[in-house]
Nucleic acid binder design. Structure first.
Lengths: 168, 168
DNA sequence: ATAAACTTTCAATATATTTTGAAAGTTTAA
DNA sequence: TTAAACTTTCAAAATATATTGAAAGTTTAT
């Protein structure tokens, strides 16, 4: 396979996977493009490579910076801004995990915790089922959350080493 | 907090979380509703509880059955079909992981594997960056995939026990 | 202060996804 | 076989999300 074809397939595939996980296709493609770029790219270059508008590049690049996956690079003596991606996959995974935890899991955890305090007669089947289910869910999501904390503190080899050793 | 209010907040929160992870809000809400229902529910009841159309209930309940999270229950002497959710959270997590792996991760893995075979001069910076990045990504996603396999074989306490012991 | 070289904003537009509901299909009982 | 009681389908409508691009804003050099 030729480089150009492979690059396009990578951009397509990564964009599709992203949408399946609730991340915007274009944001993922901008990220993918920066990931495989040997040098930082300008807004101009991203526009051309992905055939998207200037405004779109601007929005997505800023969101990637919010996620701490991309940095702005200023080249001495140039007005233009360049962008480069964090290249270490383990680092990327940790930053994504950290953000999703903060933005999506923690708020849910707060709500679940509230919901364990529902008032009502535990002899009522509905109430019993609700409190049982919410209790278990709360417990589970808390454990998941703690596991993510563990992962965030771990180093890649240690993490995968331990996971794989768990069973065999 | 009263039961009705708590139930509604659970349905809302769970639906929102789902959309953030690429799962349709309504499917998640149907699932949540069945999760906290002490008895299997009919299409009729789901329609009323969530204020959605018959067709919508049908589609979502079928997709939940595709995911193996919901079962159809036939009550002896009744025409109507009833639906009940798997209630064990660890079982739910495993089934979701299994499906996302099969539908979303495995196809990506195939593509990444293809892309490691890009032809071209490794002295070309672009080619080198591409093959390096794809190689690392391929390796990483493979390890993740293997870890999911490990989890699928594990039992909940063992899994969380091991994860938590990893660091402290 | 001005203009050139940029970046950012956001209302309008386009695209993608979800939902509806009526019609078609299916199953069961008599 | 017919009709009642259901489920399924799918084109059209509604809604949600992403994109454009021109105008406004900012920064820098002179």
């Amino acid at each position: 396979m030729k480089y150009e074809e492979a690059k396009n397939q990578f951009l397509q595939t990564w964009g599709k996977l992203a949408t399946e996980w609730g991340i915007s296709r274009t944001m993922a493609q901008v990220h993918a493009l920066l990931l495989i770029a040997p040098e930082p790219l300008s807004a101009e270059e991203i526009m051309e490579e992905l055939n998207i508008s200037r405004g779109n590049v601007n929005m997505n690049v800023r969101e990637l910076m919010d996620w701490d996956l991309v940095n702005k690079i200023l080249v001495q003596g140039e007005r233009k801004e360049y962008f480069e991606a964090e290249k270490d996959i383990w680092e990327i995974a940790k930053r994504v995990a950290k953000e999703r935890k903060r933005r999506e899991i923690e708020p849910v955890l707060k709500v679940l915790d509230q919901l364990t305090k529902v008032e009502g007669d535990r002899k009522d089947k509905k109430i019993k089922e609700f409190t049982d289910r919410i209790g278990e869910l709360n417990n589970f999501v808390n454990k998941m959350d703690k596991s993510v904390d563990t992962m965030l503190k771990a180093d890649e080899n240690w993490f995968f080493g331990s996971i794989i050793k768990m069973i065999r």
